[in-house]
Nucleic acid binder design. Structure first.
Lengths: 344, 344
DNA sequence: TTGTATGCGTTATCAA
DNA sequence: TTGATAACGCATACAA
């Protein structure tokens, strides 16, 4: 006789136990448990009663093992503390629920290897698919996996357009908000960015540059700064900018948390926002409307991004092909107080 | 021949395939895959090469089925958008990682039934244990489960002290912060609370009352208000308070988001904080230090709560008993600007 | 040191 | 309509 290495703390009721107690075969128990309609009503009732009596719960592990499918999808989130991801998760989970899938959230918390680890769960059939809100894993690994397994990238993305992904037009949005600042009369506009490894930030930077160039404004590399995409990062970057002799009149941050950090730095230095300096952000996190001054920013259709990503993934898991591997959703400029042009 | 209902999109390499290719038994393959040291080095090398060649990945489902253990713990989070939970999650995950456990986050997003659903995963052996940051599930269900399965409740808790839980002394903390306000000279202090079903809020309310009573301040039920524990909830409650003829000089909110909402309402009404009204919160969420004015609040040792909760759960999963089913950690009053007494 | 054979709990095929 | 039984992929007791 074989037995597990570790004693289970608690006994488990199986089909066998139910079958014995009910005086039927395990096949019948299984059929009743799954509501198969070929079972005779009287029999069904009888078995149901026993199931209830013994409080039988089918072992999900065994089921999944049989089906070679967990109907579970893992969502890789770079940083769960970042509220930007919240609504995306809701979108994903809504779509998953509608289609009978379970979602589980893997928090990377900025640890790079977690992403790889969960790809492994995919390879080991522990998960049926992956939605990654990060594109940090080794690029070639990700490409290799995407070729054979269901995976969708949302928000972030790679140069390789064949990996299914869904995002907004970051370049276009960045250009749009920069042009908005130009339209308000600003000519000396700083840009706060982050990790240039991430296409996301490269695109936003490119949009910023495109807007300046199209309006005949020269590029000044000194007012383009990079740091962590956090409150502290924005705070630091702004302090650097404040040291420059030729000061800026506006700031476009590639993320709301950075923008808020920048505003705090400005306020600490005695500058008024938007009186002395206008600040625009990107993402429209929850706090941006609460913060004082409320932040003018780019809103991404977060719920739709999540919902649509899950929809794509379900298609892939069902073995179907996607019409387009890349989907680009619309953004929206939310005008609030931080640029001095309140819409009413 | 039997086969799964749904075709797997992609073929899977199993021990059998490796065994055949390497000309050995599946037992040997299994041993090499798990780095058992009884395998002869030359053999090990040989099998390893084949494993690599075929890119064999052990099927986690089968392993778990065999072991009757997933080494996975589910964390039930009421609302992942609430940053209060972030650091707790980090604490949990750190401890889990140190002990070879995987964590998965189940976002309730305020939907009550999710908690029940994940308890089900426990019953079905899909999870080895549960940490719930919510205590919303039907009380009797939870008590029944806790009797037989590894579960720990953190932050929230039930009257039933036998269900393992870890928390701060909410009553004591609420009393402490109320006394702090009294010490600043306030006599008319409002309290913003939420769902009285939750012991958490009942305790904080009780602490508030205790402080008033001990200092001979009469209770005025009109300045105790309840609403959703959100920004909007706090905003609404404060607006109600502003309508009273006999205005308050201080507000103690049973949560930081409510406190911030209240401050916004005050500012909108032309009141200065802390000039005209002092506001204290509870939880010390990330934003409380960034908000203007920065919030005086109670800090819970979030990381420790998470780490310790996971530690308790591991004990339970190993079949051991806990010395104390309830653990109470220290809180800390963080004095910032919102009550007008900046500590330097 | 390696191989054979069994069981984990379920579902599904086939026979009764 | 029900029952016996063979898989799913892995890990291990036991035999060789």
């Amino acid at each position: 006789m074989t037995r597990p290495a570790r004693e289970k703390a608690f006994a488990m009721i199986t089909v066998k136990d139910v079958a014995k107690a009910a005086g039927v075969s395990i096949a019948t128990v299984s059929r009743v448990a799954r509501n198969e309609d070929i079972v005779k009503p009287t029999m069904r009732e009888h078995v149901r009663r026993v199931i209830k009596e013994l409080n039988y719960q089918p072992n999900a592990l065994a089921r999944q093992m049989r089906a070679q499918s967990t109907r579970t999808v893992v969502i890789i989130v770079p940083d769960i503390g970042n509220t930007f991801f919240h609504e995306i998760l809701v979108g994903i989970q809504t779509c998953a629920e509608e289609n009978g899938y379970q979602t589980l959230i893997a928090n990377m918390d900025n640890k790079q290897d977690i992403e790889n680890r969960y790809f492994n769960a995919l390879l080991q059939r522990q998960m049926d698919g992956v939605i990654s809100l990060s594109a940090n894993a080794a690029r070639n690994l990700m490409e290799r996996i995407a070729k054979r397994y269901p995976i969708v990238i949302a928000c972030q993305y790679l140069d390789n357009k064949r990996i299914p992904n869904i995002t907004i037009d970051n370049l276009g949005a960045a250009k749009y908000v920069t042009e908005y600042l130009i339209g308000l009369g600003h000519r000396r506009i700083a840009h706060l960015t982050s990790d240039p490894e991430k296409l996301l930030y490269r695109d936003r930077l490119a949009g910023y540059k495109a807007a300046l160039s199209e309006h005949g404004i020269g590029l000044d590399r000194k007012i383009i700064r990079g740091d962590k995409p956090s409150f502290e990062g924005g705070f630091r970057q702004m302090n650097e900018l404040l040291r420059l002799t030729k000061s800026v009149t506006a700031v476009f941050a590639a993320g709301d948390t950075m923008a808020i950090g920048a505003i705090k730095a400005l306020q600490k230095a005695g500058k008024r926002v938007p009186g002395d300096v206008s600040v625009a952000g990107f993402d429209d996190i929850e706090f941006s409307s609460i913060f004082e001054p409320s932040l003018t920013t780019i809103r991404q259709p977060k719920y739709s991004i999540g919902y649509s990503a899950m929809g794509k993934l379900i298609k892939l898991m069902n073995g179907r092909k996607l019409d387009m591997s890349q989907e680009i959703l619309d953004f929206e400029l939310i005008v609030r107080d931080s640029c001095g042009a309140r819409k009413r």
